[in-house]
C-alpha cells in the first residue's frame, strides 16, 4: 500500500466520524438514535453491530459493484444488507447471549437503517473495495460514537448511572430516559455540533449543507 493510499484511508475514517457523521451531520437513521440510547450499554452494543454490518455491506457492494445491474441495484443492496444482518443476529444469539437479550429486538431492524443503504448507494457502489471498506469503518465508527455520546447524557441525566453503575443516588431529570428526552438529547447535541461547525469551521450546520 502506498503512502498516499494510507492517508486517504485515514481521511475516509475521519470523514465518516466528523464531516459526514450519520446522525449529527447527515441527519439520517435518527430512529435508533432515540430508541436504543436510554443506556450507554445498549447504545454501544447496537453501535458495534451497526459498525460490523456497515463495513461488511460496503465491502460486499464494492466487490459486486461492476456486476450489479443499475436497474435493480437497490433491491440487491437490500438483500446484501439483510444477509449480513441475519449473520450478526445469529452469531450474537449464539455467542453473546447477555448482549443479545438487551438489544436482540433491534438487531433485525438494522436492515431498515437508512444510513447503511445510504453509504452503499452513495459511496460503496462507486468506489474501490479498499476505500469502501474504510468508508464503512468510518461511518460505522461515527454512528457508534454518536450513539454512545447521546446515551451517555441520557443515562447520566435520566437514571443517574453509567453502564448500569450508579453514579448518583437520584434521578436528576427523568425525562431524558423517556422517548421525549431522546428527541431533546439528540436536538441539543446536534445544535452543539452545529455551533462548533459554524463558529470554528465556517460551515452551515447539519443537513448536508456543510460542504467545506
Amino acid at each position: 500500500m502506498s503512502n498516499e493510499d494510507r492517508i486517504s484511508n485515514w481521511q475516509l475514517i475521519k470523514n465518516g466520524i466528523f464531516k459526514e457523521n450519520t446522525i449529527f451531520r447527515l441527519v439520517i437513521s435518527l430512529c435508533p438514535s432515540i430508541a436504543v440510547t436510554n443506556s450507554v450499554k445498549n447504545g454501544f452494543l447496537l453501535g458495534v453491530a451497526v459498525l460490523f454490518v456497515q463495513t461488511m455491506v460496503n465491502t460486499t457492494v464494492a466487490i459486486f459493484r461492476k456486476f450489479i445491474h443499475p436497474k435493480i441495484r437497490i433491491p440487491i443492496f437490500m438483500l446484501i444488507i439483510s444477509g449480513w444482518v441475519t449473520v450478526v443476529d445469529m452469531v450474537m444469539a449464539a455467542y453473546a447471549r447477555a448482549a443479545y437479550k438487551e438489544i436482540g429486538l433491534y438487531i433485525q431492524i438494522i436492515v431498515a437503517f437508512a444510513s447503511i443503504l445510504a453509504r452503499a448507494e452513495m459511496f460503496a457502489s462507486k468506489n474501490r473495495v479498499c476505500n469502501a471498506f474504510f468508508d464503512g469503518l468510518g461511518s460505522g465508527l461515527g454512528f457508534l460514537l454518536a450513539l454512545v455520546l447521546i446515551s451517555f447524557f441520557r443515562e447520566l441525566l435520566g437514571r443517574g448511572s453509567l453502564w448500569g453503575f450508579h453514579i448518583v443516588q437520584a434521578k436528576p431529570m427523568l425525562i431524558f430516559i423517556l422517548p421525549a428526552g431522546g428527541f431533546l438529547a439528540v436536538g441539543l447535541l446536534m445544535a452543539f455540533f452545529n455551533w462548533i461547525d459554524m463558529r470554528f469551521y465556517g460551515g452551515k450546520g447539519a443537513g448536508g449543507a456543510s460542504g467545506h
Partner: peptide
C-alpha cells in the same frame, strides 16, 4: 438482471446456511 439475482441468492443462501449450521445447535443448547 436474472444472473445478478441468481448469484446474490446463491451466495447469500450459502453464507446464511453455513452460519446457521454453526450457530443453531449452540443457540438451542444455550
Amino acid at each position: 438482471i436474472t444472473a445478478n439475482l441468481v448469484v446474490i441468492y446463491v451466495v447469500g443462501g450459502l453464507l446464511l446456511a453455513f452460519v446457521y449450521a454453526k450457530t443453531s445447535p449452540i443457540i438451542f443448547l444455550k
